[in-house]
């Protein structure tokens, strides 16, 4: 019964999904699906050319997104979605490359790639679904787990400091940074729309419930309870200083668009620089001339 309902609910974005792969593996109450819906909406509203839009994922629950979108899509290895996307984008600058993955994949094992892609202002969009734990493997502590939260490898509570992802990527050089919860469906959609049109490294963090593991282990209730927590505690502060975005356990969630600025992308910088230094012998490579 549930399956049918879901399929009906997703009808409008069916063209973007591999329906032959449904049902998906995500748990009831999981927020990943709603982020995918926002993505699909954004793609539709932007009228993106589906033949030129690519999704790359790493490993984990969100890593499965690449398998469900009916686009050129790559499900890579754990932590390596961003450098894969980097190679893909550089090899074929005409396509738009979206990395869809989780917090453990992007900020834990893949953290080094995250900051370097931001530093280079690589022209890709990274959508990071943050559920505060490693869910696919059973709810282990992550680089994003708030201090005090319980996890299967932090059974006495987490005592490590958590990354504030918008602060991290801002410091590294990202040129579009936003954070939402999956309750903010339309805002997520709008951010994805903007980021798809943004040239440079875009990063959207979406906080989502992991009902089966994080919420259950921490006795936070079901999906609805978590959405209520987001509703009660999130505060929109566009342009907020990214230094102020730490997330305490069940504390305030500052959301919004924090950064949106212009800077040459890796390829723009490469073309401009090499053209200037080498001159006529340089074989123009990127998209410098097409707009």
């Amino acid at each position: 019964m549930k399956k049918e309902e879901q399929n009906d609910a997703r009808n409008p974005i069916e063209g973007l999904l591999r329906m032959d792969r449904m049902p998906h593996i995500w748990c009831p109450g999981c927020g990943i699906g709603t982020v995918v819906t926002s993505f699909a909406e954004a793609v539709k509203k932007n009228n993106e050319d589906l033949n030129k839009l690519t999704v790359v994922s790493g490993i984990g629950c969100t890593g499965r997104v690449a398998g469900y979108v009916k686009l050129d899509s790559f499900h890579t290895t754990h932590g390596r979605a961003i450098p894969f996307a980097t190679g893909l984008k550089l090899a074929n600058p005409d396509i738009k490359v979206v990395v869809f993955s989780g917090d453990g994949d992007l900020a834990g094992i893949g953290g080094n790639h995250l900051i370097h892609a931001a530093r280079r202002n690589m022209d890709i969009l990274v959508i990071c679904v943050n559920n505060f734990n490693y869910a696919m493997t059973g709810g282990q502590v992550a680089a994003t787990t708030p201090k005090g939260a319980n996890a299967s490898t932090a059974p006495y509570g987490n005592f490590e400091n958590a990354f504030s992802l918008p602060y991290l990527v801002d410091a590294a050089g990202a040129t579009y940074v936003a954070r939402w919860t999956c309750l903010h469906l339309r805002r997520v959609t709008k951010s994805i729309q903007e980021a798809l049109n943004h040239r440079g490294f875009s990063f959207i963090e979406v906080i989502t419930p992991c009902v089966t593991l994080y919420a259950r282990r921490n006795r936070l209730g079901d999906g609805l309870n978590l959405l209520k927590y987001y509703y009660d505690n999130s505060e929109i502060q566009h342009g907020a200083d990214t230094k102020t975005l730490d997330i305490d356990y069940q504390g305030k969630l500052i959301v919004g668009k924090f950064i949106d600025k212009e800077k040459p992308t890796f390829l723009d910088a490469m073309d401009t620089h090499l053209n200037e230094v080498i001159g006529d012998d340089y074989q123009l490579y990127g998209r410098l001339n097409d707009d």
């Binding site: 790359v56 050129d72 790559f74 890579t76 290895t77 932590g79 390596r80 450098p83 894969f84 996307a85 980097t86 190679g87 893909l88 984008k89 550089l90 090899a91 074929n92 396509i95 080094n112 790639h113 370097h116 890796f266 490469m270 090499l274 080498i278 012998d281 340089y282 074989q283 490579y285």
Partner: peptide, 26 residues
């Protein structure tokens, strides 16, 4: 630069091999 391609020094060897895999599918 004179041949028409891209060189990128990646952040480590994990990144360099997977960037190649990405580039090949590109």
């Amino acid at each position: 630069p004179m041949v028409g391609g891209v060189f990128i020094q990646m952040e480590d060897e994990l990144a360099s091999i997977i960037s190649m895999i990405g580039a090949v599918w590109g």
